[in-house]
Design a protein around this nucleic acid. Structure first.
Lengths: 227, 227
DNA sequence: GGTCATGTTAACTATCCACTTAAACTAACT
DNA sequence: AGTTAGTTTAAGTGGATAGTTAACATGACC
């Protein structure tokens, strides 16, 4: 026996193995896509034996599910809370833009992962939507999504209707409005490879592009709806 | 004699098999993603033996490459030609929105595929950008992309600058403008699974959503840039 | 110190899957 | 007919990979 796992207590005291696996899985799934990810790579990145993945999450699919829920559950609630609040439309637009861009900026590959996952495994979103309130660990799994979304749309809708009646804004459905917001904020992260390859935009230039966007989008969106 | 070999001898009939394979590959790659696609499924969907795939395209990666080029080569040129033309900004915006939505509507899963591919295989776009002018079959492979893109941006930029000098539009860079355009058009196809799962929007409702969008986007975009 | 529950590991298995091979078919041209 | 070149197929091969098993470790509790 040349070498056993002699090292023990100093470092590995960190978080539970399960969350280390989840974190590694998140990284690998986002990097490679669900189908392209390898359990081996996840195990290696988590610093554990491959069999442990199956001990904690029975199959690759369940692990992928956990990762998707974990990610989706972090993004949605923050945004929903903001948009359902009593803030004015102007405040909501500006805060949304800043919140969205500032957050995604730190995880620039998340949007592409989520989009791919939505299209290749729509059942994950469906089960998430149908699923109940809170995770057993108290993890960030949003309470059932549809009512929350309807609440957001209702609030936005009433605010937009009021403005339309006022004559201070053009009529627009809350669905279109929300989709516009998301589109304009998420797009840089989606097309980043194009910006890099076709326009030769490097990392720094991309950050500047984001800064400019963060600054101009709120006025852009509000002005687009002026009557 | 149905057919003489008066011209090029290699093309006439073997074309069928190859294009059938390509079409099947396109369908399967778009449906499952590149990593999730199986050569077997492609062969089956093309109605040929699996070994034929390797006879025509040596490896899965080359096949994936061909598919990506095929798809990217169809979308980009049409749009680039429009945006680099001498049409007014108003005309360009309206035509872009209609062109984009009408075309993608017929292949609603393309955007998600392209996005995933961009992020997991950026080298495909890079080689496409670097690659030369025209396919041997006269197929829609754009002449080297970067100069075309620069041409588009230059034209758009001068038109936008003129408006800004006029005082008829707010100042905006052509890059931001172009990204706005794409964002607002492509978003419905990207978030369609969310609209379906979370808001219960079915196929018909989605088409209506697209119609409404197609109608309101041109004014939305132009008004957003009013001074 | 024995037993039990939970974690963790190395080694294994079974399947999947991209790719290969060698033979057969087809048509065109002697 | 015979030769040749391109095309197509059935049947593999080898390696990657998700999932299993059985043994081992560790601490808790009696």
């Amino acid at each position: 026996m040349t070498d056993l796992t002699m090292q023990k207590p100093s470092e590995p005291i960190d978080d539970q193995t399960e969350t280390r696996i989840l974190r590694a899985a998140r990284a690998v799934f986002v990097r490679r896509g669900t189908a392209g990810a390898r359990m081996q790579e996840i195990a290696h990145e988590a610093g554990v034996n491959q069999a442990l993945l199956h001990y904690y999450f029975r199959t690759k699919e369940r692990l992928a599910d956990a990762v998707f829920r974990n990610i989706a559950g972090r993004i949605a609630p923050t945004i929903a809370v903001l948009l359902a609040s009593d803030a004015t439309l102007e405040q909501k637009v500006e805060r949304f833009v800043h919140l969205y861009i500032d957050n995604v900026r730190e995880h620039p590959f998340l949007p592409a992962y989520v989009i791919a996952e939505l299209h290749h495994h729509p059942e994950r979103l469906k089960s998430l939507v149908a699923s109940a309130r809170v995770d057993q660990d108290g993890d960030f799994v949003a309470a059932s999504i549809t009512p929350l979304a309807r609440q957001v749309l209702a609030k936005l809708g009433s605010q937009l209707d009021e403005r339309a009646a006022n004559g201070t804004m053009r009529q627009v459905s809350p669905e279109q409005f929300l989709v516009d917001l998301v589109a304009l904020c998420v797009i840089p992260f989606v097309v980043q490879p194009v910006l890099e390859s076709v326009l030769g935009m490097d990392g720094d230039a991309f950050q500047l592009f984001l800064d400019e966007r963060r600054k101009r989008l709120p006025a852009f969106i509000l002005d687009a709806l002026r009557p």
